[in-house]
Amino acid sequence: MTRWIALGPTGKTVTAYAMDGGTLINSATAEDEKSALAALDFEANQAIRIGDGTPAKLPAKLTPEDGQSLPGFEQASPPDIIGAWIRLWCTGFAADKPNWDGVICAISSGISHWIHISANEAVSCQSFLSPGLIDAFGGAFPPDAGALFDSLSRPERLASHLRQAQVSARTAAATGHLIGAELMAARPYWLGQSVVLISDEEEIAEGYATALEMQSVPHSTYQAQDLIPAGLTALGKSLELFE
C-alpha cells in the first residue's frame, strides 16, 4: 500500500495529511512546510501538493487523472479562480455520489463560490465577495429577514441599504442586505437546484442556510474538514496511488 502525503498552504500556515492508501492516518498544521512535515512525522513514498500546477479550466473533472498536484479551477467567462482546497471539498462531497447534479456553495477566506457540479465535473461557477464584506461591515448573524428580502427585491439599492444599516448600527441588517443581493445575483445557480453549503466557518454557513430557508431552497450543510478524508481518498485513487 502506498504511503503518501498531501500538503499545501492554508492561509498563513501549511497543512499536511498522512495517507496510507485511501486511509487518512494523521494531519498537522504549522507555520511552514518543513515544520508541518516534521509535526506529521510520517515516512511516505510520494507527496501530492495541493494548490500547485496550472488551474484546470472549467468545465473540468473534480479530480485530475495524472500529475503530482491538485491545482484549483479557472473560468474564462466570467473570469474566476477557485482554490484547490475548495476543489478537494467538492471532491469529498461527490465521492460517493457519481451521478449527483446540483450546486455547491463553498465559502472560505471571504469569498463564496457557487459551483455547478454534474457527473463528477465542475461545469461553471459564479463567485462573490459578500462574506468578506459582511466581515468589513461588522455584520452579525443570523441575517435580518427584512433586510434580506429588501435586497432580494431591490438589489440595485444595496449601497444605500448598507449605509442605512451602518448609520443605524443594525449589523444583522448589513448581513441580510449583502446575502440578499448575492442570492439575487446567483439566482440561476440555486433556483430549482439542490444546493449544498460547504464552509470552514460555521457561523457564516448558518447565515447562508437561513437565507436559503427563507427562499424555500432545499439545501444541506457540511463542515469542510469533514469532507477532506473522502476528498483525499478520491484524489489518491484518481492519481493511481492505490487500487
Rank of each mutant, 00 (worst) to 15 (best):
P79S: 12
G53R: 00
I107V: 14
P98D: 02
A186V: 00
S112L: 13
E182Y: 10
P79I: 03
S118Y: 05
S151P: 11
A174W: 11
A145C: 08
A234F: 07
A205L: 05
M1V: 11
P142V: 09
A181T: 05
I48S: 02
F149S: 15
F93I: 10
K61A: 15
A230I: 01
T221R: 15
V123H: 05
Q46S: 12
P59G: 09
S112H: 04
Y208D: 01
E182A: 12
I107T: 10
F149V: 15
A173K: 06
C90H: 07
H161F: 14
L133W: 04
C90Y: 00
L227S: 08
I107D: 09
I228L: 11
P79N: 08
R163M: 13
D135P: 06
E243H: 09
G231D: 02
S127D: 03
I198H: 04
E182H: 14
A230T: 01
S108C: 07
A186G: 05
A211E: 08
I86S: 14
D41Y: 00
L191D: 13
S109Y: 09
A60W: 09
I50G: 01
L183R: 10
A165P: 03
L148Q: 13
I198M: 04
A209S: 11
G22E: 01
A60M: 05
S238D: 01
A140D: 13
H113Q: 12
T29Q: 12
H113F: 03
F42H: 05
D80R: 10
V123W: 00
T171I: 05
W4E: 06
P155T: 03
D200T: 12
D80V: 05
F93M: 11
L158P: 08
Q223P: 04
A145M: 10
E202D: 10
L40W: 06
T10M: 13
H177V: 04
A18Y: 04
P131Q: 09
W89K: 08
S168W: 00
R187N: 04
F137R: 08
A159F: 03
W85E: 14
C125T: 14
L37D: 00
